[in-house]
Simulated scan of single mutants.
Amino acid sequence: MPSEITPAGLRERKKEETRRLLLEGAARLFRERGFEGTTVADIAAQANVSVRTFFRYFDGKEALLLPDGVQIFAYVENALSERPADEDPLDAVCNALLAAAEPFSASTLTALGHPVEDLENVVTTRLVQAFSDFEERLTVLVRRRLPPGTPDADLQAAVIACAALSAVRAVLRTRRARRAAGIEDTGPAPLRRAFALLRGMGSVERP
């Protein structure tokens, strides 16, 4: 039976395969050589493509530290679906974002041989941007968790989602300011601390 895959379909499959090879090759090299010891040329060679081809897929090797926005949102969506149904919506969202951020934490970067002091800010910046890009989609997920008859459910869902994502952005701004002032972060992990502060400001109104 003749193949029904069109030339356009074959091109898309080839692009996905190249992207996969670049990601897998980069992960292998980062573990073996560390982030600083790995060049874009090394990653391209590992995937058997040119450096020019590499830049068609990624804007630099830092982009390989995180999956794309679709995958990150899937992490959040899955984490949120696993939260207890009776958990306060704000707590559920904060816990889901924490769970999604954990694979990109300082401890994980250290385990991969990355110099955290140089890369943590890069990773946080990209993670914040990815979270911000699905603000509306997160609002939809939050609204589904609100009890039936919740007053102004659309508004409450939007406030909860935006507040949680704003806490992530606040962590980034505060870290930058502290580092510029020569102040070291101490105490709990900044993102966890930010969510604790946010939870203390109030929770969802019940019907």
Score class of each variant (00 low, 15 high):
1 M>H: 11
2 P>H: 12
7 P>Q: 11
8 A>N: 04
8 A>S: 14
9 G>E: 11
9 G>V: 10
18 T>D: 07
21 L>M: 13
23 L>K: 13
25 G>T: 12
31 R>P: 01
39 T>C: 00
41 A>Q: 12
41 A>Y: 05
41 A>H: 05
42 D>S: 08
49 V>Y: 09
50 S>K: 07
51 V>R: 15
52 R>K: 11
54 F>Q: 08
56 R>S: 10
66 L>P: 03
66 L>A: 05
69 G>P: 02
72 I>P: 00
73 F>I: 06
76 V>W: 09
79 A>T: 04
93 V>E: 01
97 L>M: 14
101 A>E: 08
109 L>Q: 07
110 T>C: 02
112 L>F: 14
114 H>R: 04
115 P>G: 10
118 D>N: 11
120 E>D: 11
121 N>T: 13
125 T>R: 13
126 R>T: 03
129 Q>T: 13
130 A>R: 13
131 F>E: 00
131 F>G: 00
132 S>V: 01
134 F>E: 03
134 F>S: 02
134 F>H: 15
140 V>S: 06
140 V>P: 04
140 V>R: 14
142 V>D: 01
142 V>N: 03
146 L>Q: 06
151 P>F: 04
153 A>N: 01
156 Q>H: 11
157 A>Q: 03
168 V>F: 08
168 V>R: 01
170 A>L: 14
176 R>A: 06
178 R>M: 08
181 A>P: 02
183 I>A: 03
187 G>N: 04
187 G>L: 08
189 A>F: 01
189 A>R: 14
190 P>K: 06
195 F>Y: 15
196 A>K: 06
198 L>T: 09
198 L>V: 09
